[in-house]
Write a protein that binds this DNA or RNA. Structure first.
Length: 575
RNA sequence: GCGCCUGUAGCUCAGUAGGAUAGAGCAACGGAUUUCUAAUCCGUAGGCCACUGGUUCGAAUCCAGUCAGGCGCACCA
């Protein structure tokens, strides 16, 4: 009975489900209705509400209120239920005994950092989570940052809910862009040597290229590099420039505490022969044919010429048009490598693939899924999360240029200015489908304008209360001995109900791959605590009340900590 | 022209797979500062949930169409 509060919701759903099943037993067809309880918005509607009578009414051809009435007579309610009523069109409202749910506080403090987590067992679903994958040709921009933050938080949420998560970064270290990078670095090396250079439009203009050139000159002096054959020089420049950029990217991610289990190289995929053998296999299968694509609709392409290419029949699997696997010079397209890459993930034994891409890759989703359907017969892989664009502003004015990158504002510049916590939390306050207007001045604001401070402040405030209580010589009772029955006010009940729902929220977040729910959840919990704090004192003359409220405050602190940890945001003890 | 995403308070956004009276922050206005942290709280005001039709007991939510904005549309990545 003591622990009943924690599992009360499931028990109520079970007894109601039993009643529903009996009611439906006489039906000829084997229809079923799933009982689900919800928290009503209004306090007058009780602690839990159930709408099951409404769908049942249609099936049984009865009035919903009559159905509800019948269900209530058939239900064996546990002791914790104080009152049930039928309201509105046929809702069943359930009111529990006060403080019967407060036992959850003890569960929270006992489980501490693992409250809300599910264990990872041997049968856990293995997920390959690919995110960031920014090209190794320059610093990450703010849009990459959003993908990084979203991906990392999603990884943490999935891990917490019992998935085995493998975090992966796909390095696009093959293709023409890399040649451009190598050439840009070489030009800067010549420039450092005193030569006058002309940067072509195609070259990367950013100052970071100069830094790389300087770095490379420390490895080999200019004369040595110049003495090599062009082929040898390009290969060396390629390799070192990519490595330098990847170090820079990994550094920037490290500042935000984002790490990967694996960096997967596209170049090595090509070198392994897997791309060519895949194309060969598909040709034998007949899913690849030699053909010519029509000119694309929309904006006219100046130098369009019909080319005969190896085409993948993605249209057979739900794509709009067949997609080329080889360029006119015969080398594999990015798409070809990407299919081989995804097939490789599948071969590595992952049950599920999740890719986080920028919105500008939206047109790519259907073709990759089509290819995977052709190769694996699964039609729901990979799960692609498209993260919409970030518009960077300062005091409402668009910010676009960065000296360092030459084109866009880098993630690093933003993190250095506003801090990792503010960047991470802010990016998590919106659904990924909505475009994000990120204002640098707002992100530095230390007020309610900036949600991260409100949440961190709640955590620090509780820490301060606990310190104060200790200073005053209050000795905390062992958790199991605290009497929670004094926690009956509306504010206290709201906090308890919120914390009780933490696990359900995480389930939804993991099922729907919506990690932002953690942020909206913890914002509400923090706000509710601030509200409670202003109406009630934690440390009072009443010893029993003080003990109960210290328990409550400690639990709130713990849940805020757990949620912030999932978001990769720090939970300070003082501010 | 086609595909994907979006449209909710003046602004920025939530809305827990269709539920009861639509939610928060900011901005506006009015309050709380002998405090366990005011980086906070309380109150007032503010809505044709883009528009039109449909589905049903019931729609911001589902469907169709329209309008508006963003992203993308051979041989780049």
């Amino acid at each position: 009975m003591k622990k009943f509060g924690v599992i009360v919701k499931q028990s109520l759903e079970q007894v109601l489900q039993d009643a529903v099943n009996i009611l439906l037993k006489n039906m000829t067809d084997s229809s079923s209705v799933h009982v689900k309880l919800s928290r009503p918005k209004m306090k007058e509607h009780g602690d839990y509400a159930c709408n099951v009578a409404m769908p049942l009414a249609g099936m049984l051809n009865m009035n919903p209120r009559q159905v509800a009435d019948k269900l209530l007579t058939m239900t064996a309610w546990p002791d914790a239920v104080e009152e049930t009523t039928i309201a509105g069109p046929g809702f069943i409202n359930i009111r529990l005994q006060k403080s019967c749910e407060a036992e959850v506080l003890k569960k929270i403090l006992t489980e501490a950092a693992s409250y809300g987590q599910l264990p990872v067992d041997n049968n856990a679903e293995k997920v390959c989570l690919e995110f960031v994958s920014a090209n190794p040709t320059g610093p990450m921009h703010v849009g990459h940052g959003r993908g990084a933050v979203v991906g990392d938080a999603l990884g943490r949420v999935l891990s917490a809910r019992g998935f085995k998560v493998h975090r992966e970064y796909y390095i696009n270290d093959a293709g023409t862009q890399i040649g451009v990078l190598a050439n840009s670095v070489w030009l800067r090396m010549c420039e450092l040597q005193g030569q006058t250079i002309q940067l072509p439009d195609s070259a990367y203009p950013g100052d970071y290229i100069i830094d790389i050139a300087k770095e490379l000159l420390k490895i080999h002096d200019f004369e040595t590099v110049q003495s090599w054959s062009e082929e040898q020089r390009l290969a060396w420049l390629n390799q070192e420039s990519i490595a330098a950029n990847m170090r820079m990217i990994a550094d920037d991610l490290d500042i935000m505490n984002i790490h990967f289990d694996e960096y997967f190289s596209e170049k090595k995929l090509h070198e392994s022969g897997k791309v060519q053998s895949l194309i060969q296999r598909l040709r034998e299968q007949g899913t690849v044919y030699l053909g010519t694509l029509p000119a694309p609709k929309g904006k006219a392409i100046e130098n369009y010429q019909p080319v005969e290419q190896w085409l993948f029949r993605t249209t057979d699997f739900g794509d709009d048009v067949d997609r080329p696997l080889a360029k006119k010079d015969g080398t594999a397209t990015y798409f070809a490598a990407d299919i081989a890459y995804h097939e490789n993930k599948f071969q590595r034994g992952f049950d599920r693939m999740i890719d986080i891409w920028g919105a500008d890759h939206g047109g790519y989703v259907s073709r990759v899924r089509a290819a995977m359907k052709a190769l694996t017969q699964k039609d729901d892989q990979p799960d692609v999360l498209l993260v919409q664009m970030v518009n960077l502003t300062r005091d409402g004015q668009a910010v676009k240029m960065s000296k360092r990158a030459g084109t866009f504002v880098t993630l690093r510049e933003v993190v250095d200015e506003v801090g990792s916590d503010a960047v991470r939390f802010n990016f998590m306050t919106r659904r990924i489908e909505s475009q994000f207007d990120f204002d640098l001045e707002e992100a530095k604001e230390k007020s309610n304008e900036n949600p991260v401070y409100s949440v961190q402040y709640a955590h620090a405030r509780i820490a301060s209360i606990l310190r104060k209580a200790k200073e005053e010589g209050i000795v905390l009772l062992p958790v199991k001995d605290v009497d929670v029955s004094p926690l009956v006010s509306a504010e206290e009940q709201a906090l308890i109900a919120n914390m009780l729902a933490y696990g359900d929220m995480l389930t939804v977040a993991a099922d729907r791959l919506e990690a932002y729910r953690v942020a909206t959840y913890v914002m509400k919990l923090a706000a509710d605590f601030h509200s409670f704090y202003h109406k009630n004192r934690v440390v009072t003359e009443d010893e029993a009340l003080t003990q109960a409220r210290l328990l409550l405050a400690s639990a709130v602190k713990q849940v805020i900590f757990n949620a912030l940890t999932l978001l990769g945001v720090s939970a300070p003890e003082q501010m």
